[in-house]
Design a protein around this nucleic acid. Structure first.
Length: 570
RNA sequence: CGGGAUGUAGCGCAGUUUGGCUAGCGCGCUUGCCUUGGGAGCAAGAGGCCGGGGGUUCGAGUCCCUCCAUCCCGACCA
């Protein structure tokens, strides 16, 4: 490709709409342009990267026995109604009507479609297992699209679905995918971690996320500081270790004390001279069916994902101040668990174990001291509902946990019979018995993976692509576009690279050297081959490695092999 | 959806407080000269419904109302 013809308009300054590095660089280097919030055009450079990633994905999927297909983006509402997700999925589902006023959805995921397809076509155990996947646009009406390709409303996803006869088969498929995913992200040159996760709206039992480690990540992962242990989890899922340590002191009588204006844990702690660990924090949450009170220790935070799972509800929100007042009779800050009516109380084990503690009294400007859970109020559920922080013990081995930010690029789920049951996907086993297929699903955010790679691989000057997914491996730059000899040598190098199957761009634009260098760095070619006076004199093109800045003069004789060698070592 | 901010040329911004004549700057773009190892220089140009609509006023980029769009924080999210 000649740079004169390459449609990659670069910008000196990043548009103000961009906040994170990958977004800024993709705009500046001419990879993407925004059409509307969360909607982007992928330009030629981006498409090349995308195809590289897709190719790696296809190879690994096919390698595990996957078969590619393509399902419609537009899906009839009936299927979603049949699975129950038309109502459950919420406003994130893009909905539209056709001219006959029939309801449709733009697929955010394809469990319904694939299950119905397989339901119709597979009826015998002999046809299983089946691994089907597609790479296709997905639609989610995000409440808040952001960070460019990282969280768009339209994005490209690889989704695979496995159909097995039983749990054992599912476990095998799941393990295969775990392996394939690891290989995919390794080949993409990403530094990632596999973590235990929550399954959210997709449902099912086991699930793991593949998180690319990056400061800009929207997710938080916790992992064990002992490498041999290997425990790693999304913070949403990370289990706490509860130990009832101190010997219980005698229970003292409950007393109500005036605590004027002391609403926060810090205020109350200082005012009453009680450590936050001995205060019960009471938070009211509203779900689609009830109001509940969640109790955690004063120095802890509620983990809403855990709470949602404990309650088995679909929606969970911190209650509005108005609601708090209606339920408890006081404003937030003085609410407590004593005397609550028609409100279930969910306590974290740590909160439940507090002895002679402090909590809100449900009387304005008063707190209780010497509160004792169980004696002074009853708890409906005692379960782990709090956030884990770095520094806490690993639930598997007890060593210290560390924390990191990550971008979720893939997630794998054991769905079990969740969809096959509601949609009636069955097969006949050897004994002629009808059984539900056991399913798994496995997603990779392809466009997000591209963005994640940039988050992890860049410097002040621009993108530094891993060779495996770079849009082109090399750029050939004649320093002076007016110097016939340089231009001629550059052309020769370019032609020979092309003949050797090495992707190259020839920067034949009549620009000054600096401009071409800057663009090369910005776009992120792994290798830059400069043809200047020195290269001409010695007949040795100068090869510069983008990631290290290392420069090497390469004789023309076996140039191709040397360059291939350098690329391989990257 | 709640809070905050911003919309002026392709991109980055000034001008809006205190209304005033043909709306500016840098980059980019076009043409010419010159230059060619890290976003050169000179000269001449092109490019604007000042986000849309409504109002106040002799006069609105500037004031008022309203709508829209975009971004940030939060809530939310395979």
């Amino acid at each position: 490709m000649r740079a004169k013809e390459l449609f990659a308009p670069t910008l000196r300054e990043a548009p103000s709409e961009a906040e994170v590095v990958s977004h800024k660089l993709m705009l500046r280097a001419g990879y993407i342009r925004r059409l509307a919030s969360g909607l982007y055009t992928l330009m030629p450079l981006a498409i090349r990267v995308l195809k590289k990633i897709e190719r790696i994905i296809r190879e690994e999927m096919d390698g595990q026995g996957g078969q590619e297909l393509l399902m419609p983006i537009m899906q009839p509402a009936e299927l979603w109604q049949e699975s129950g997700r038309w109502d459950v999925y919420g406003p994130e589902l893009f909905r539209l009507k056709d001219r006959h006023n029939r309801d449709f959805a733009l697929g955010p995921t394809h469990e319904e479609i694939i299950t119905v397809l397989v339901r119709g076509e597979v009826s015998s155990y002999k046809q299983l297992p089946l691994l089907l996947y597609q790479i296709q646009n997905k639609y989610r009406d995000e409440r808040r699209p952001r960070f460019g390709l990282m969280r768009g409303r339209e994005f490209i996803m690889k989704d695979m679905y496995s159909f097995d006869r039983d749990e054992e088969g599912l476990n095998k498929s799941y393990t295969q995918m775990h392996k394939a995913y690891t290989s995919i992200f390794q080949r993409c040159g990403l530094n990632f971690r596999v973590v235990e996760a929550d399954s959210g709206a997709i449902g099912g039992s086991d699930t793991h996320e593949f998180m690319v480690l990056a400061e800009s990540g929207e997710g938080t992962v916790l992992f064990c500081s002992r490498d041999e242990c290997g425990y790693a989890s999304n913070v949403e899922k990370a289990a706490t270790v509860f130990k009832a340590d101190k010997a219980a002191e005698d229970l003292r009588d409950l007393v109500m004390l005036e605590t004027p204006g002391k609403r926060t844990i810090t205020d109350v702690s200082q005012y009453l001279d009680v450590p936050p660990q001995n205060i019960i924090k009471t938070l009211l949450f509203e779900t689609e069916k009830e109001i509940v009170a969640a109790l955690v220790r004063g120095d802890r935070e509620v983990n809403e994902t855990k709470l949602l799972n404990v309650l088995g509800c679909l929606r969970l929100e911190l209650a509005e101040n108005e609601t708090v007042r209606t339920v408890t009779g006081v404003s937030a800050g003085f609410a407590g668990p004593v005397g609550l009516k028609n409100t279930r109380i969910v306590a974290d084990p740590e909160a439940a174990a507090i002895v002679n503690g402090v909590c809100g009294s449900n009387r304005e400007q008063y707190h209780f001291i010497n509160i004792n859970p169980g004696r002074d109020f009853t708890m409906d559920i005692i379960r782990d509902i709090r956030m884990v922080k770095s520094g806490e013990p690993c639930p598997r081995c007890g060593a210290e946990l560390r924390e990191a930010k990550g971008i979720e690029v893939g997630q794998i789920f054991k769905l079990g019979d969740k969809y096959s049951k509601v949609l009636g996907a069955t097969y006949l086993d050897e004994s002629g018995q009808s059984r539900h297929m056991i399913m798994g699903c496995y997603g990779i955010g392809v466009t997000r993976t591209m963005a994640a790679s940039i988050e992890q691989n860049h410097d002040q000057d621009g993108i530094i692509w891993p060779a495996a997914i770079a849009p082109y491996q090399t750029v050939v730059i004649p320093v002076s576009s007016k110097d016939e000899v340089q231009v001629e040598l550059a052309r020769e190098v370019y032609n020979r690279l092309a003949a050797a199957g090495i992707e190259a761009v020839l920067d034949d634009r009549p620009e000054r050297a600096g401009v071409k260098f800057k663009d090369a760095d910005l776009i992120g070619y792994p290798l830059r081959i400069t043809i200047g006076a020195k290269a001409v004199a010695e007949h040795k093109p100068e090869v510069r490695v983008r990631s290290t800045g290392e420069v090497k003069m390469v004789p023309m004789e076996n140039m191709e092999n040397q360059i291939l060698g350098i690329l391989q070592d990257l």
